[in-house]
Amino acid sequence: MSTIANSIFSPELAARFDKLVTLYPVKRSALVPMLLYAQDEVGYVSEAVIQEVAQRLDLFDLDVRSVLSYYSMLRTKPAGKYNVQVCTNISCMLRGGYEILDHCKKKLGIENKQTTPDGQFSLEEVECIGDCCSAPAMQVNYEFHDELTPDKVDEILDQYAAGKILDSTQKDGK
């Protein structure tokens, strides 16, 4: 049972949010996790997400916007089903991060921050993702892929396209 009538979220996520707000000494603490989980389900932080999250936490919509715009992983526009995030920060750059990014652009036929017409893939150049010692690295949604070569990228993206790799947001059957 959700405490919010007509929640835009799935019953599972709504229930999770109901619990999340009780977890912390201050309700507002749940804001960043809620936005992430909402984005995982909805695909991005939509206006509807902002409004419901604000309502759940007794915040102004403006508070939510102010916070969400601070964090680079939160987006207010839809991305592809598989959001390919290629790191080009120093350790990755030294080991071919930009080549990997270029390769992804060619392979997917899209530029940075674009989504393929079928909505399957989007591409993003990102800052350090914390996989420096296995550079170059990328994340597809939350899954790490590293020690990349163009061939390996082909293989990985093909597998995603074929639905063979499930990332954590999909494992729960969502």
């Binding site: 120093i90 914390g130 996989d131």
Partner: peptide, 11 residues
């Protein structure tokens, strides 16, 4: 919040 480029030990 391990974010310093070049660092992945906490990972």
């Amino acid at each position: 919040d391990e974010s310093e480029p070049g660092t992945c030990k906490d990972h």
